[in-house]
Simulated assay, not measured.
Amino acid sequence: MTREPLITFDKIWKTYGHGEARVNALAGVDLAIDRGEFVAIMGPSGSGKSTAMNIIGCLDTPTSGKYGFLGVDAGRLDRNRRAVLRNLYVGFVFQGYNLLPRTTAAENVELPLIYRGIAAGERRDRAIEALEQVGLLGRQNHTPAELSGGQQQRVAIARAIVAKPTLLVADEPTGNLDTARSHEIMDLLTRLNAELGLTIVMVTHEADIAAYAQRTIGFLDGHIASDTMTREAA
């Protein structure tokens, strides 16, 4: 029996503005992403890739069409129910790290668990475990100012995985890093995908970063222009 994809787009349209100012950011997109896939999304500015990512992460909803996540029509959920879905199933990593500057690495990683109402002792234990998974054991009491850019992004990844999400959404995760640190972060994401079975959807404009993914989807003018398997799943 074939397992249902984790993510499905069924004729997804996303439209902004009206009349002559009307813009179709997505124009009838069909897409399926399976559990455990590592997918890179590419495309020029205005291609629709960021809009697609926002819908995948339940940060936005389509104008029409069906967005399926875990078999649920997530595009029709109200704001509060989408927030619950994100909290339970989705982790996010952004280009700018988005760490709280005056709190330690461990405290930053604990944040998603606070929203789940998990007790302080368990939060701390799980934060330390997540920091160990990203290679930062021993740095849990450092603030962001005491960490390099690559280490800060590792903290952000630990925060994204601490609640054991089904999906990790990464928006230009290496955009603020030099080449060496970028490849370290991509090695880490590749390992988490393989070892945890974590589904990863990553937006990037860099071909060498996209090459780490198993599959690369190219957007152009609101359509999928290419969909290529770049390597086999781990």
Rank of each mutant, 00 (worst) to 15 (best):
Y115L: 14
Y115T: 04
R116F: 00
R116D: 02
G117E: 12
I118W: 13
A119L: 11
G121T: 11
R123Y: 10
R124T: 01
R126E: 05
R126N: 04
R126F: 07
A127I: 02
A127M: 08
I128A: 07
E129S: 12
E132H: 11
Q133G: 00
Q133I: 06
V134S: 08
G135R: 14
G135S: 11
L137A: 15
G138Y: 08
Q140Y: 08
Q140I: 01
N141L: 10
N141M: 11
H142R: 13
T143G: 04
T143C: 07
P144Q: 06
A145R: 14
A145P: 00
E146P: 04
G150P: 03
Q151R: 10
Q151D: 09
R154P: 03
R154V: 01
R154M: 07
R159E: 01
A160K: 02
A160W: 04
A160S: 06
V162M: 02
A163W: 00
A163S: 15
K164D: 14
K164W: 01
K164P: 00
K164L: 01
K164H: 14
T166I: 08
T166P: 02
T166F: 03
T166V: 14
L167K: 10
L167A: 01
V169N: 04
D171L: 11
E172W: 13
P173E: 10
P173G: 06
T174M: 08
T174L: 12
N176E: 14
L177K: 06
D178Y: 06
A180N: 13
A180E: 15
A180Y: 11
R181H: 12
S182I: 05
H183E: 09
E184M: 11
D187P: 03
L188V: 07
L188I: 12
L188D: 07
L189E: 01
R191I: 01
L192W: 02
L192I: 05
L192T: 05
L192Q: 04
G197H: 09
T199F: 10
T199Q: 10
M202V: 02
M202E: 04
V203I: 15
V203Q: 05
T204Q: 13
A207P: 13
I209Q: 03
I209L: 08
A211L: 08
A211N: 12
Y212D: 06
A213I: 05
A213D: 11
I217V: 15
I217E: 03
F219K: 07
L220K: 15
L220M: 13
H223D: 03
H223L: 14
I224K: 09
I224H: 05
D227E: 07
D227L: 02
T228G: 00
T228Y: 01
M229L: 14
M229S: 07
M229R: 15
T230I: 12
T230P: 03
